[in-house]
Design a protein around this nucleic acid. Structure first.
Lengths: 151, 151
DNA sequence: CAGCATCCGCTAGGATACTG
DNA sequence: CAGTATCCTAGCGGATGCTG
């Protein structure tokens, strides 16, 4: 009667097997700006607005589909589905399906995902700290360039 | 014969007044996931693939337009222009035009931009560290879902 | 509730050509 | 070199409707 994960079985309450493991010996290319190194892949996941919001929300603990949709609010369920699926695919989020009557699914961060959270939070904090400066810079810029917007 | 900045005059070598100041008293909303708080604005700047790459490249010191384009390589000059303009608008990058014969422009991070660099680097590092795990997760996922891709 | 499927507009972004 | 201007397409992402 254990809830069916999209993947392998695992009791929701206990461990998620995202454990240590981590061979990480595919391509020790150290260059940060090298397009082929896979940074882009991960960054692209950060890129789309929704992923970040979902991750931040999940940082507060497991959420069900509707909870997520209401929390992020502004996201369509289509985008939520896609976002959450991609995060699951990347192993950042664990999806658990409980075979109850009206169907119930919850999402939680894996350890990998939780690690990313810290960085995302740092980014969010930085944003908060500098939003005023940036807003000011934009106004100044826009005043100097009264013509076409760049946005 | 000081080079003309896009904005106000300021000797490139000396200060940019992004100093301490930082009133930051516009909207002390602390919520990280609140869409109206401006986090999104900054995050969106991180969002598009090019900004991050350009910032990382500029972290290595001032670069000229073509240098940037060659360094990032893969970016069209259209996108480079847009990216760099947006970064300038946000006060993250300083654009300096030298009125030489074949025209010469260089871009460098402002102090604000340099601050962001650390976070971006952290993100890039994280990406490198976890790319293997993520790639593995994707393969596993894809093997389990042989049908339509999510990508 | 938790989703997949479909239609569809919008724009991010590449390719190309021209200017100062 | 350092852009600007156009054209044009892939896909992101919203709205809506249907299943289990």
């Amino acid at each position: 009667m254990s809830p069916t994960h999209t993947e392998v079985t695992a009791p929701a309450g206990a461990a998620d097997p995202t454990g240590p493991a981590a061979p990480a010996d595919l391509d020790p290319c150290g260059r940060v700006d090298h397009p082929d190194c896979g940074i882009r892949d991960v960054l692209d996941r950060i890129g789309d607005k929704w992923s970040v919001l979902v991750i931040v929300e999940l940082a507060g603990g497991p959420r069900r589909f509707r909870e997520l949709q209401r929390a992020v609010d502004g996201i369509s369920q289509r985008m939520l589905t896609l976002t959450v699926r991609r995060l699951e695919r990347d192993g950042l989020v664990l999806r658990t399906v409980y075979p109850t009557v009206p169907a119930q699914v919850d999402y939680r961060l894996t350890e990998t995902g939780a690690g990313l959270t810290h960085l995302v939070k740092a980014l969010a904090d930085w944003s908060l700290e500098h939003r005023a400066v940036i807003a000011e810079a934009r106004h100044t810029y826009d005043r100097a360039h009264t013509d076409h917007d760049i946005r």
